[in-house]
Simulated assay, not measured.
Amino acid sequence: MGYEDLLKEAENLNVLIKEKKLKLRDGLCYGNRIAINSDLKTLKEKNATLAEELGHFETSSGNILDQSNVSNRKQEKRARNWAYEKLTGIISIISAFEKGIRNKYELAEYLNVTEEFLEQAIHHYREKYGIYYEIDTYIIYFEPNFSIIKKWF
């Protein structure tokens, strides 16, 4: 899912997106308005930022800028996890595998995310599922090395 796709989704949710200079952060969600830092250099960075801010729109409430508050940190993590699942969902990862993608660099390219975002998403899935996750005829290993295996019966 690319940046343009997320913009369309935001429009369908009646969320207004504006790119503007932000001094301290890459994105900000306030009600149904999201600001994306216009200084972000790549569409992949904008994509990840918009996904996280849409995650805030979908999962957060109130002002959570004070990250010394445990409740605010939990809401921040929930929004990030929403973004990971939106942009790097398990089914999308399997689809990439089926198309012959075998390394993290190619997978990040295929998913329109940065390698750093992909690494964070893999960490999220490791926290959520453990060392591996089985779905249909696939096993996705998150440790020790990220890999996908198709089971043959």
Rank of each mutant, 00 (worst) to 15 (best):
143 E>D: 15
105 Y>M: 02
127 E>R: 14
14 N>Y: 06
71 S>D: 15
68 S>G: 05
85 E>I: 04
37 N>V: 02
84 Y>A: 02
124 H>S: 15
94 I>S: 02
81 N>T: 06
100 G>T: 11
119 E>H: 11
22 L>E: 04
113 V>Q: 05
76 E>M: 05
41 K>F: 11
53 E>T: 01
2 G>T: 07
90 I>N: 03
147 S>R: 15
71 S>R: 15
65 L>Y: 02
92 S>E: 13
55 G>T: 02
149 I>R: 14
64 I>L: 05
34 I>E: 01
48 A>P: 00
139 I>L: 11
33 R>S: 00
114 T>Y: 08
85 E>L: 11
85 E>S: 02
57 F>A: 01
37 N>Q: 02
131 I>T: 14
86 K>L: 10
112 N>Y: 13
23 K>S: 08
114 T>N: 03
44 K>D: 14
24 L>H: 12
28 L>W: 09
71 S>V: 12
1 M>C: 10
106 E>K: 14
83 A>P: 11
59 T>N: 10
70 V>D: 13
10 A>G: 01
46 K>R: 12
137 T>L: 10
87 L>H: 11
2 G>K: 14
9 E>D: 04
109 E>F: 03
138 Y>I: 08
85 E>D: 12
141 Y>H: 12
33 R>G: 00
98 E>D: 04
140 I>Q: 06
137 T>P: 00
36 I>P: 03
53 E>D: 01
44 K>N: 13
6 L>W: 06
46 K>V: 08
122 I>K: 09
152 W>C: 07
24 L>D: 13
62 G>Q: 02
81 N>L: 01
39 D>Y: 10
152 W>M: 12
61 S>E: 10
113 V>E: 08
106 E>I: 02
19 E>Q: 07
147 S>W: 01
140 I>A: 11
137 T>F: 06
132 Y>M: 14
114 T>G: 09
35 A>N: 00
68 S>A: 12
41 K>L: 14
115 E>M: 13
123 H>W: 12
146 F>V: 07
39 D>H: 05
115 E>N: 13
15 V>E: 01
88 T>A: 15
5 D>T: 13
47 N>L: 08
126 R>S: 13
54 L>M: 08
34 I>M: 03
148 I>Q: 03
132 Y>Q: 14
52 E>N: 06
31 G>Y: 02
127 E>L: 15
81 N>Y: 15
148 I>C: 04
133 Y>V: 10
82 W>V: 00
150 K>T: 09
140 I>H: 07
75 Q>K: 14
93 I>K: 04
18 K>F: 00
94 I>C: 01
90 I>D: 04
8 K>Y: 09
29 C>V: 01
133 Y>W: 12
100 G>N: 06
63 N>K: 04
92 S>R: 09
22 L>A: 05
69 N>Y: 06
36 I>A: 02
73 R>S: 09
122 I>S: 07
75 Q>S: 08
153 F>M: 12
85 E>F: 05
123 H>D: 13
18 K>R: 06
97 F>Y: 14
66 D>Q: 09
52 E>F: 10
120 Q>E: 15
28 L>P: 00
148 I>A: 06
131 I>G: 11
81 N>I: 13
45 E>T: 07
64 I>S: 05
92 S>N: 15
2 G>Y: 08
95 S>T: 11
98 E>G: 00
123 H>M: 09
53 E>Y: 03
147 S>V: 05
89 G>M: 08
148 I>M: 06
124 H>E: 06
39 D>T: 10
146 F>E: 07
48 A>V: 11
142 F>K: 12
124 H>R: 11
67 Q>T: 14
51 A>Q: 07
